[in-house]
C-alpha cells in the first residue's frame, strides 16, 4: 500500500498530463450542421479517451518494469524523467491527442466534416502516439535490464559519430563466440548507449553502404579498432568516428573519456554508482581513475 502511494506521487510529479485531461467539453460551433457537430463531438471524446487509455496502459506497464529495478526511488524518477524527456511524452500527448481534439473543435467546417476521413486521421494520430509510448517503454525496459548482469557480462558504453552517411555498423568479438551487435544508421549524427556484452575483446568491423542499386560494405576489420569488456563493470570503449570524404571513408577510435564520462554522469548516474567504470580502450590511461579519485576527494572536502 505504501509503495502504491509513492508511485502515484512519482507519476504526478513526472507527467502531469493526467491532470490536464478533465472531462472534455464541446460547445457546438453555430455554423456546423447538427450531424457534423455530433460526429466531431463523438470523435473528439473517443480520441481523447483512447489517448488516455494508451497513457494509462503505459503507466501500468512502466510500474511493472520499474518493480524489477534495484534503484532507489530517486533514481527511478531519474530514469522516468530521462524517458519522458527523451521521447517528450508531454509534447507528444499535446501533439497527438489535444491538438487533434482542438482541430475537431475549431477547424472543421461542414465541407470538411467527413466522418470516415476524420476517423482515419484519429487512428493515425493515436498510432503515432502509441509508438512514442512504446519507444519510451522500450527505453525504460532496456535501461532497467542493464541493472542486472550475468557473471560473464559487462556493460559497454558504445559511442559513435558519422560525418556523412553510415548504414549499420558492426561490432564483433575478436576471437571468441561472444555477442555481435550493430548500430546505426548514422548520418551526421551520434550514437550513445550502454549495452550488455559478454566479457572479451571486440572490434569495430563492417559498415553497410547502400548504393542506388546495390549494397556493399566498408570493412574496417583490419584497422585494429578494438576494445575490451570486463565482466561486472561499466566499460568505457572510446568513440568510433566514421568520416566519408567523397569516394573514400575513414574510421578511427578516439579516446574521449572526459566527454563520455560527462554523458554517463548525466544519462546513467545510477549505473555509474552501481558499477566500477573502467577503461576498456586504453588500459593504462590514467584519466578516468584520476578523475573519479579527485571527484571523491572534492566531494568529501579533502
Amino acid at each position: 500500500m505504501f509503495l502504491m502511494i509513492r508511485w502515484k506521487i512519482i507519476f504526478i510529479l513526472l507527467i502531469p498530463i493526467y491532470s490536464w485531461s478533465s472531462t472534455p467539453y464541446f460547445l457546438p460551433k453555430p455554423e456546423l450542421s447538427k450531424k457534423c457537430h455530433k460526429v466531431t463531438k463523438k470523435l473528439a471524446t473517443k480520441h481523447e479517451e483512447n489517448g488516455l487509455l494508451y497513457f494509462n496502459q503505459y503507466q501500468s506497464k512502466i510500474k511493472n518494469i520499474l518493480k524489477k529495478s534495484t534503484a532507489d526511488q530517486g533514481s527511478k524518477q531519474q530514469i522516468l524523467n530521462k524517458a519522458s524527456s527523451k521521447y517528450s511524452l508531454e509534447s507528444s500527448f499535446k501533439k497527438f491527442v489535444f491538438d487533434f481534439v482542438d482541430v475537431l473543435k475549431n477547424d472543421i467546417t461542414n465541407e470538411t466534416c467527413d466522418r470516415k476521413n476524420l476517423e482515419s486521421l484519429s487512428e493515425k494520430s493515436l498510432k503515432f502516439y502509441k509508438e512514442i509510448l512504446d519507444r519510451s517503454k522500450y527505453y525504460i525496459e532496456y535501461r532497467v535490464e542493464l541493472e542486472s548482469l550475468d557473471a560473464d557480462e559487462g556493460l559497454a558504453i558504445i559511442s559513435a559519430y558519422s560525418y556523412g552517411y553510415a548504414g549499420r555498423i558492426e561490432i564483433n568479438p575478436v576471437k571468441f563466440m561472444g555477442d555481435s551487435m550493430s548500430i546505426g544508421p548514422l548520418n551526421n549524427s551520434q550514437y550513445f548507449r550502454i549495452a550488455k556484452l559478454k566479457a572479451g575483446e571486440y572490434q569495430w568491423g563492417r559498415i553497410k553502404v547502400y548504393g542506388p542499386m546495390s549494397l556493399s560494405y566498408r570493412d574496417f576489420s583490419d584497422a585494429n579498432l578494438k576494445f575490451k569488456i570486463q565482466p561486472g563493470k561499466l566499460n568505457y570503449t572510446g568513440v568510433f568516428i566514421h568520416e566519408v570524404m567523397g569516394m573514400y571513408a575513414k574510421a578511427e577510435i578516439f579516446d574521449k573519456a572526459a566527454v563520455i564520462t560527462t554523458m554517463i554522469e548525466q544519462d546513467y548516474p545510477l549505473l555509474l554508482n552501481k558499477y566500477e567504470l573502467v577503461n576498456g580502450l586504453i588500459e593504462n590511461d590514467p584519466f578516468i581513475n584520476f578523475y573519479l579519485t579527485q571527484k571523491k576527494k572534492l566531494k568529501s572536502g579533502n
Binding site: F254, D255, K256, V259, Y291, Q294, K295, L298
Partner: peptide, 16 residues
C-alpha cells in the same frame, strides 16, 4: 589535438 584535451582540463577545473 583532439578536443578531448580541453574537455579533460575543463572538467577538472569546473569540478574544482
Amino acid at each position: 589535438v583532439d578536443v578531448e584535451h580541453s574537455w579533460r582540463l575543463k572538467k577538472m577545473l569546473s569540478m574544482a
